[in-house]
């Protein structure tokens, strides 16, 4: 995981050319799709906690920021599982002034409250179907990579991939990965 983070940071570095301070403070509203097929919605806030400028090789300035991103999400696999997620990410962001895009590599820790459909019954006369659900709690550590468009006015968009693990004492653990895409409403 450490190696992957370093690799991601390296990638972001190689894309930057010149910088001016860019303020990441924003609200995000996204389509959240664990495993690419589950449908969900996520709302989050990006809060910069530290920003600094560095100069690379040809005197090109790069904005660097440390961010925290608290988020909440709902996603579901129809008739199989409903999930409520609270997540927080610590991210490192880079961008250069003459580039229209930014990159964020982050690590996250989330908590999922899941309702798993386990069984049910169907009334043969009416066709009415009822389901019984089981509650499962998961912790989800993730690593994330986000690529986004800086806003012209206040609205930008972004794409994000995440990869991690669902950890629970109630079941066997499993991988947790997926995609997210959405809009960011910048505050400054």
């Amino acid at each position: 995981m450490r190696r992957l983070l370093i690799l991601m940071m390296g990638l972001t570095m190689s894309w930057s050319i010149q910088a001016q301070e860019f303020d990441y403070s924003s609200w995000s509203f996204s389509y959240y799709a664990p495993y690419a097929i589950q449908a969900g919605l996520k709302v989050g806030k990006t809060i910069p906690i530290n920003t600094w400028t560095t100069t690379t090789g040809k005197e090109q300035e790069t904005d660097n920021s440390l961010l925290i991103q608290p988020q909440i999400a709902y996603f579901a696999n129809p008739q199989v599982q409903q999930n409520y997620l609270a997540n927080i990410e610590l991210g490192y962001a880079r961008t250069r002034e003459d580039r229209k895009f930014y990159n964020i590599a982050s690590i996250g820790l989330g908590f999922i409250y899941a309702q798993q459909f386990v069984d049910g019954s169907v009334a043969i006369g009416s066709g009415e179907v009822s389901h019984n659900k089981e509650n499962i709690n998961y912790f989800v550590p993730t690593i994330n990579y986000e690529w986004g468009k800086k806003p012209k006015n206040k609205l930008g968009y972004y794409f994000k991939g995440f990869w991690g693990h669902r950890i629970t004492g109630q079941r066997d653990n499993s991988g947790f990965l997926g995609l997210e895409t959405g809009l960011k409403l910048y505050m400054n």
């Binding site: 386990v118 019954s121 169907v122 009334a123 043969i124 006369g125 066709g127 009415e128």
Partner: peptide, 20 residues
């Protein structure tokens, strides 16, 4: 609910339990 569709008779009583 296809099970009810096959029987197709609202006067029938009884449930069928299923697992997901």
């Amino acid at each position: 609910s296809i099970l009810s569709e096959i029987v197709n008779d609202p006067t029938v009583t009884g449930d069928i339990d299923f697992i997901t």
